[in-house]
Simulated assay, not measured.
Amino acid sequence: MQGRPHLSPFCPNPPGRPAPVAGGLATWAVATVLALPGAAPAADMSAATRKEIDHMLARVVSSGCEFGRGSTWHSGPDARVHLERKLGYLSARGMVASAEDFITMAATRSSMTGEAYTIRCKPNPAQPSAAWMEAELKALRASAPPAAAASAARR
């Protein structure tokens, strides 16, 4: 076996072989799942919650703002597609029971890098996407009839 590198589970990076990518298979699996078309919402997401999330996603598109992921700015429609993929992944696992869950788990930061998302509505400076989404949700609830607003606040 002269000339062949020794491959062993105890020596994952033999000389001459590049270091493995951080996260390895787990990172690839998450990226693959997030790239799939959105799954149907889980049964535990109420229609009212879905309506609030759909409203926030529609505002991302209609606002004319840009969505920052990493060092790249994306259009509203591209941002919506990305956030819907994340929502599909999370809701298929029953992880989104409220609009606040959506903001926290899907619309705040990258699940791959942990880097915060931002939203830039010119001429204003960029702001954390969580703050922008929370403001949109607050405005939606403030414009809702009192009974619907009270119901949404209890979730």
Rank of each mutant, 00 (worst) to 15 (best):
D101K: 04
L7Y: 14
A42L: 01
G38S: 15
A29C: 07
C11W: 11
A22L: 12
E66K: 13
G70M: 03
R17E: 15
V81Q: 11
L87R: 01
A47I: 04
A19I: 07
A131K: 14
P9Y: 09
A58Y: 06
V96P: 00
P18I: 04
K51V: 12
L36Y: 00
R120P: 02
M112Q: 13
G114F: 03
A48H: 05
R120T: 07
P18Q: 08
A35Y: 03
T108F: 06
L90Q: 13
A130W: 06
A43V: 06
S8K: 04
A43C: 02
A116T: 14
S143F: 04
E100Y: 10
A144L: 15
R59M: 12
A43L: 05
Y117L: 02
D101C: 04
Q127Y: 04
A79C: 01
T27Q: 14
V96Y: 02
A107T: 05
P123N: 05
I119Y: 08
H74K: 04
R155H: 13
V81H: 08
V60R: 13
P125G: 06
A99T: 08
L87K: 01
E136F: 12
P5W: 09
A97Q: 14
D101Y: 06
V60C: 08
S98F: 05
P77F: 06
M56R: 07
S111H: 08
R154T: 14
C121I: 03
S143I: 09
G24T: 02
S129A: 15
G16Y: 03
R120F: 04
A149Q: 10
E136T: 11
G76H: 09
E115V: 10
A147G: 06
A139C: 08
T113L: 05
P18H: 09
I119V: 15
H55D: 15
R4E: 14
K51C: 11
A97L: 13
A48T: 07
T108I: 06
S129V: 04
A40W: 01
V81G: 07
R80V: 08
E100M: 10
Q127W: 03
A126C: 04
S111I: 12
A92F: 00
G68M: 14
A40R: 03
A97P: 06
G24D: 02
A97R: 15
T27Y: 05
A148G: 01
M45E: 10
T72K: 13
L57N: 09
S151R: 15
P18V: 07
